[in-house]
């Protein structure tokens, strides 16, 4: 006997990972999927939705869809999402669902890092890294690859260090040359990695948290929260203990699902979702250099077959009109 179950689907298409979650009406997470985006967000999302549909029971329905992450518009156009939300709002929503009294959220993803401050569950301030990606996951990824250490073990190396070396964390390029200097003078890999974790945390705190009071409880989420070395460095430098949510790696998607549910309920209960069959369509993204004026905008158009689903990137907005 199948009970009909309605789920909200949250999709987070980030630079490094594409995550999908199914959340029931009470906010419980029933299914999560973490895939590498691999530079191909359309393929990653189709793959993810395919895996998701295999895991659904016959009576399950998707009653709301929300997308977030840097690929949120792309994903939103493909599935016809109810809500297309920025990462900050999504992460804040997810964190306050997990820990209603959360005051600070540290989120480090593939190419951006953010800090969000909340009061009574309402975000009251946030900061995001600027152009530089020195304090983010892709930097760790790159250094792990350079040292030939699997990213999953990277953090545990740091924990084995007794005396972390000082690495310049201001800039990823300087940090790398600094690491090479230290390695050539004979420091152990463990000490270098621990130093790198501290450098990254220092950089994060200097860039994002300068002059702000970090109040507990502090949640640490995003893909980098898997790195025990970084978490330890945060705790050491901040002098607080971090809460790492169980689903730290899909919190963005979780938040998008919650916001989608909220929006659909507010709008009378009907989702715009295109259905899981949408993955059978032939999606493609084409970019054109608009020559309409001297701005020469790079316009992206998302097609299903020959049908244009959405477009963006133009300053004047003429391409967005269907």
């Amino acid at each position: 006997m199948f009970v009909q179950k309605g789920y909200s689907l949250g999709i987070d298409v980030g630079s490094v990972s594409t995550n999908l979650v199914l959340v029931d009406d009470s906010g419980n997470l029933h299914y999560k999927l973490y895939l590498r985006t691999g530079g191909r967000p359309i393929e990653a999302l189709i793959e993810g939705l395919g895996q998701l549909s295999e895991n659904l029971l016959p009576g399950d329905r998707i009653t709301a869809v929300g997308t977030t992450g840097s690929g949120r518009r792309l994903a939103g156009a493909m599935v016809n999402a109810d809500v297309v939300k920025n990462e900050i709002t999504a992460h804040a929503a997810a964190a306050s669902a997990v820990a209603p009294d959360v005051k600070t959220i540290i989120e480090i993803g593939g190419q951006d890092s953010k800090i969000i401050f909340l009061q009574e569950g309402v975000p009251c301030d946030f900061a995001m890294n600027t152009v530089c990606a020195a304090g983010t996951g892709s930097f760790i990824d790159r250094q792990a690859a350079r040292l030939g250490i699997p990213i999953a073990e990277f953090g545990s190396y740091a924990l084995r260090s007794d005396s972390p070396v000082r690495i310049a964390g201001r800039c990823a390029v300087f940090a790398e040359s600094d690491m090479i200097h230290k390695q050539q003078t004979g420091h152990s890999v463990e000490d270098i990695i621990a130093g790198l974790c501290e450098a990254l945390v220092r950089n994060y705190l200097n860039n994002l948290a300068k002059g702000k009071r970090i109040l507990e409880p502090v949640l640490f989420q995003g893909g980098v929260a898997a790195n025990v070395g970084i978490a330890a460095a945060f705790e050491r430098l901040l002098g607080v203990s971090l809460i790492i949510p169980k689903y730290f790696d899909v919190m963005g998607a979780y938040g998008a699902a919650l916001l989608a549910h909220e929006a659909v309920v507010a709008n009378g209960g009907t989702s715009k979702f295109a259905g899981l069959d949408c993955i059978k369509q032939d999606f493609s993204a084409r970019s054109i250099d608009c020559n309409g004026c001297a701005n020469m905008c790079e316009v992206v158009c998302i097609y299903s077959g020959n049908k244009k689903l959405a477009s963006w990137g133009d300053r004047c907005g003429k391409h967005g009109k269907q």
Binding site: G121, P123, M128
Partner: peptide
């Protein structure tokens, strides 16, 4: 990047107004 920040910022203001 700008879009994300502006959207998040206005969300924040909206939530503050609501609450």
């Amino acid at each position: 990047g700008i879009d994300t920040r502006l959207e998040a910022f206005t969300d924040l203001l909206r939530r503050r107004k609501t609450f």
